[in-house]
Simulated assay, not measured.
Amino acid sequence: MLAFHSDAHSLALPPGHRFPQSKYRLLREHFEREPGLLRMQPAPAASEGELALVHTPDYMAAVLQGTLSAAQQREIGFPWSESMAERSRRSVGASIAAARAALAEGVAANMAGGTHHAYADKGSGFCVFNDVAVAARLMQAEWARAHRSRLQVAVIDLDVHQGNGTAAIFRDDDSVFTFSMHGARNFPFRKEPSDLDVDLPDGCGDADYLAALDDALVEVRRRCEPGLAFYLAGADPHEGDRLGRLKLTYAGLAERDRRVLTALRERGIPVALSMAGGYGVDLATTVAVQVTTLNLAAESWLAWRLSARGTG
């Protein structure tokens, strides 16, 4: 399975900053030691034209040219640097590359991404550009040129925080179905309405979470027939997460991933994953969750390939 990484471009963060950027390097290094079914590639940078499919010209220019105001930088949570801008472009490029690969091979992944708090005209909550939104728009444009038909997209957002930026970008757009399952009392405290929102109470554990997920996947199936899905497989519902407030175990999160991947594969829906959030008290717990997610995705990719070979 193809997986795209962008951790070579680091953020110039002050000591003690809450954002655990080293998790991306640790994840890549794990798969360098134990690649399994993964074929890792460095992510390309998204072009300005690609970013403009979602983001406003003024906001793009402020990020790329380094003119973000102090207030804008505070809302994003990162100080501006050339590396921050390049990292943000490559995070989007990774989701674009993963989406193309998913359409060709069934499953692919961005080893970062899931920057769902970014709006068209601003960043927020450690999110600069909205990688999934840009990739969705670009895949729709490429599909329309190649097939002269519309590509329906589904966004399955299981980060513990609601995907407010994605919901706002695709508001009133029936070509993209947005589903977010998240902590009711967690950031963002002002939610944007998705097509389907499932709010979870603090302390929600494996059984209640998986029951809610099963019901939601039935509803997604009833309301949407996508040709491509984006899955934000956040590690932050884990019980050891600093910011999550839920109580899922490793086993519960693995079962979450299996159910999503199986539901999509059984319907023949290609899926591009992104890792989204993860803020473990012990960062090794976040990386371990993400390793499992990627290995399960690779198993699903292999099942896609074997199925295609058997019917070819």
Rank of each mutant, 00 (worst) to 15 (best):
V132S: 03
C204R: 03
A133P: 12
P188M: 07
R222G: 09
S149W: 04
E225Q: 15
Q140L: 05
L213H: 04
E225N: 11
S194F: 10
D214S: 14
R145L: 11
N130A: 02
R221I: 00
H182V: 04
C127R: 12
L196F: 13
F189W: 14
V155F: 06
S124W: 01
A216M: 07
L213N: 00
R221F: 06
D215V: 15
D131A: 00
F129V: 09
C127I: 09
R171Q: 15
Y209K: 04
N186V: 11
F170D: 08
V128L: 11
T178M: 11
N164F: 11
V218Y: 00
G125H: 12
T166L: 14
L213S: 05
R223H: 03
F126N: 11
M181L: 13
V155A: 00
I156S: 11
N130M: 03
A133F: 01
F129N: 05
Q152R: 14
G183N: 08
P193D: 05
R145P: 00
G125D: 10
R150G: 12
M181A: 10
F126L: 08
D172E: 15
A144D: 10
H161E: 05
A144C: 05
H182E: 07
A184S: 13
V220W: 03
G163Q: 02
A133R: 09
D197P: 00
G165K: 13
D131H: 01
C204A: 03
L217C: 02
D199N: 01
R171G: 08
P201K: 02
S149M: 10
V160R: 04
Y209Q: 09
A212Y: 00
N186R: 11
R221V: 01
A216G: 08
V176P: 11
W143P: 14
P188N: 03
I156D: 13
A167Q: 09
S180F: 03
D199L: 04
K122Q: 15
Y209I: 06
A212D: 00
L217S: 04
M181G: 07
P226G: 06
V220E: 00
C224D: 00
I169V: 09
V134H: 01
L217K: 06
F187I: 05
V220Q: 00
L151C: 07
V176E: 08
F129E: 14
N186M: 11
A154E: 11
W143Y: 15
V198P: 01
A212E: 05
R171H: 15
D206C: 03
R223P: 01
D195C: 07
D199K: 00
P193M: 02
